[in-house]
Simulated assay, not measured.
Amino acid sequence: MAVSSITIRAVQALKSGETIWDADHREAVRGFGVRRQRDQATYVLKYRVFGRQRFVTIGPHGAPWTPELARREAKRLLGLVADGKDPADEKAKARLQAADTLRAIADQYLRNAKQRLKPRTYSDIERYLLVSWKPLHPVSVFQITRRHISARIADIASGHGKVSAARARTALSSMFNWAIREGLDIAVNPVLGTNRPVQPGSRERVLTETELLAIWRASGDDDYGRIVRLLLLTAQRRDEVGSMQWTELDTISGLWTLPGARTKNRREHLLPLVPAALALLPPRRDGRDFLLVTDPGAAETRIVGSRVGPSRR
């Protein structure tokens, strides 16, 4: 171990296992050194904090670290020590934050969301986080700014429309709120304060009697057709009708009890069925819990030729 001025020439002359500690000039920084291990010279800082001697690695000699730049970094780190902070802990924290990329946090959030969200809702959120926000996946969530988010929202709106952009923004905001509640030391949700894309108003058009009649006639006398006709008669959601079960029905009173687990607001819903709806119910088959096929989306393909379909609620 030697005490000398750390210069490029001195660093290049170091032999394996040798260390130089900065001294002998007015710019010298106490505790700043360089040591060579095998073929690599590395700048380090030795300091004391809370009564303990500590070492922190500044970086290897070569771009970007020169003796002058490494010496300035050593001064900055000693400033942290003067403020009662441990540079080694700060570097460890920085490494952890760098590992918390948007993709890593999105994966954690989605694992949690999958347990509490309906499959359709989860699928939409997964698509927004993993596809719409993919360009920001490598960036640490601690470094994502409102500018990053605003620029990406504009790109999504340009390529996929304002509705998709608004929903992608909502999905990302929910993820950041969850991450903050999980203990990530993010000062503020960076989505807050960004502009929400203006979405078109709710559609007011409803199907005419002629269109409803065309749909009714285009529906076949099978489970697919029954689903479409029940949608018209009950005005319930497609998945609710397609997943109707015998245990939910009281054919005597004509009541259909939709359990909270299958409704949007998670509340039980009692629906009286008109005679025309009851007449559409198939005979009960042994060993079958569901009244109709469990893929109600296939029903839509049966009436494509009519070019009309049930309006969304």
Results as ranks from 00 to 15, higher is better:
residue 223 D to G: 14
residue 13 A to K: 14
residue 213 L to D: 09
residue 146 R to H: 11
residue 214 A to T: 08
residue 311 S to Q: 12
residue 184 L to C: 06
residue 147 R to N: 12
residue 55 F to P: 02
residue 195 N to T: 14
residue 24 D to E: 12
residue 127 R to L: 10
residue 191 V to L: 01
residue 148 H to P: 11
residue 257 T to G: 00
residue 236 Q to V: 00
residue 69 L to Y: 06
residue 96 L to T: 12
residue 145 T to F: 05
residue 22 D to E: 03
residue 3 V to R: 14
residue 102 L to F: 11
residue 102 L to H: 08
residue 194 T to D: 07
residue 199 Q to Y: 06
residue 119 P to Q: 01
residue 33 G to T: 03
residue 206 V to E: 06
residue 68 E to N: 09
residue 152 R to E: 14
residue 207 L to E: 01
residue 7 T to G: 08
residue 118 K to N: 11
residue 96 L to I: 09
residue 208 T to C: 02
residue 229 R to F: 02
residue 162 K to I: 03
residue 79 G to C: 04
residue 117 L to V: 00
residue 138 P to V: 00
residue 34 V to C: 14
residue 137 H to G: 04
residue 272 P to Y: 03
residue 75 K to S: 07
residue 226 R to L: 02
residue 161 G to V: 04
residue 1 M to V: 13
residue 148 H to L: 06
residue 172 L to Y: 03
residue 215 I to D: 01
residue 27 E to H: 13
residue 120 R to H: 11
residue 137 H to P: 10
residue 34 V to T: 08
residue 207 L to Y: 01
residue 206 V to L: 09
residue 26 R to M: 03
residue 198 V to K: 14
residue 121 T to M: 03
residue 193 G to V: 11
residue 310 P to V: 00
residue 178 W to P: 13
residue 55 F to A: 01
residue 178 W to Y: 10
residue 176 F to A: 00
residue 47 Y to I: 04
residue 130 L to R: 15
residue 142 F to Y: 15
residue 74 A to C: 11
residue 42 T to K: 03
residue 11 V to Q: 06
residue 40 Q to N: 12
residue 193 G to W: 10
residue 97 Q to W: 01
residue 66 T to V: 04
residue 291 L to M: 08
residue 30 R to D: 13
residue 147 R to D: 15
residue 124 D to I: 07
residue 261 A to M: 07
residue 42 T to E: 01
residue 129 L to C: 11
residue 225 G to T: 02
residue 62 G to A: 04
residue 46 K to V: 13
residue 205 R to L: 10
residue 297 G to C: 07
residue 286 D to I: 08
residue 226 R to Y: 04
residue 15 K to M: 06
residue 72 R to H: 13
residue 151 A to W: 02
residue 300 E to R: 13
residue 259 P to I: 01
residue 264 K to E: 09
residue 149 I to M: 04
residue 184 L to G: 03
residue 180 I to Q: 06
residue 11 V to R: 04
residue 1 M to T: 15
residue 147 R to H: 13
residue 273 L to F: 03
residue 78 L to W: 09
residue 54 R to H: 08
residue 226 R to Q: 11
residue 250 D to F: 06
residue 154 A to S: 13
residue 217 R to M: 07
residue 155 D to T: 13
residue 75 K to I: 10
residue 278 L to H: 08
residue 176 F to I: 01
residue 171 A to W: 08
residue 96 L to K: 14
residue 309 G to I: 05
residue 205 R to Y: 09
residue 204 E to D: 14
residue 102 L to R: 05
residue 165 A to R: 08
residue 59 G to L: 08
residue 217 R to I: 05
residue 130 L to N: 15
residue 241 V to I: 15
residue 291 L to A: 04
residue 302 R to L: 08
residue 83 D to N: 14
residue 16 S to N: 15
residue 222 D to L: 06
residue 104 A to G: 02
residue 153 I to H: 03
residue 231 L to R: 00
residue 8 I to N: 11
residue 277 A to G: 04
residue 211 E to P: 11
residue 66 T to P: 09
residue 188 V to M: 09
residue 25 H to S: 07
residue 78 L to V: 08
